[in-house]
């Protein structure tokens, strides 16, 4: 039985003439005296015979069609690679631009905040008073004509400037000033201009 197992392992190669001369002699001698292995050999020979090389049918135009199909795939691949090559520097540039813009914006904002917080409200008010706007307004607006800034009017302007500095981002500055003063159009424009020059 052990001999049969060895012979059965060799039989496929025996059939296809891939054994050594010694192996061939051993197998042939065994087959002469073992009917079971002979039967086994017949089955393998039949299978081996059935697997004779036969020509595979290939469509006549297959080669040309294959070249075209491959070229299309390769062109698509190259186009994809080129897009990728273009995209990398583009995205990198965009990222750098965004980074620089963000840093610049943060820096500007920081400087602006420092400037605003460093500016005392009284100082700003005094600046405005110094340039004479409050005085002019007072003279023009006070019927008594004593030339002094009344406390209530002074406080009114002080409140206005406070409000402006406390709310520098407020877009209603102009309307607040308009509502809390009785400036002429010309004076109003000058005050606004001055305030904008001072704080914005």
């Amino acid at each position: 039985m052990k001999a049969c197992r060895k012979i059965k392992d060799l039989l496929p190669l025996y059939i296809s003439n891939d054994v050594t001369e010694d192996e061939r002699r051993t197998v042939t001698a065994h087959l002469d005296e073992c009917p079971a292995c002979r039967e086994y050999q017949l089955a393998l020979t039949a299978i081996n015979r059935a697997m004779k090389p036969d020509k595979v049918e290939i469509p006549a135009s297959y080669g040309a069609e294959l070249v075209v199909a491959l070229q299309e795939r390769i062109n698509r691949r190259i186009a994809r690679q080129k897009r990728r090559l273009w995209a990398i520097p583009a995205f990198t540039s965009l990222a750098v631009i965004l980074l620089v813009a963000s840093v610049t914006l943060l820096k500007t904002r920081s400087t602006s905040n420092k400037w605003l917080s460093g500016l005392l409200q009284e100082h700003a008010y005094l600046n405005l008073a110094e340039v004479g706007y409050f005085g002019e307004i007072l003279v023009d607006s006070e019927p008594s004509g004593n030339g002094n800034l009344t406390l209530s009017t002074n406080e009114l302007y002080h409140d206005a400037v406070n409000w402006i500095f406390n709310n520098p981002q407020n877009s209603d500055i102009d309307s607040y000033i308009l509502a809390t003063t009785n400036l002429s159009d010309e004076d109003y424009s000058q005050v606004i201009k001055q305030i904008k020059n001072e704080i914005l």
Partner: peptide
Amino acid sequence: AKVNYSHALKRLRTIFNKMGVNYESL
């Protein structure tokens, strides 16, 4: 490669036996 071939051919025989193939028809 020879071992693979040998095993393959023996396995084909097993498969054909299960299919009940008459080897003379091959």
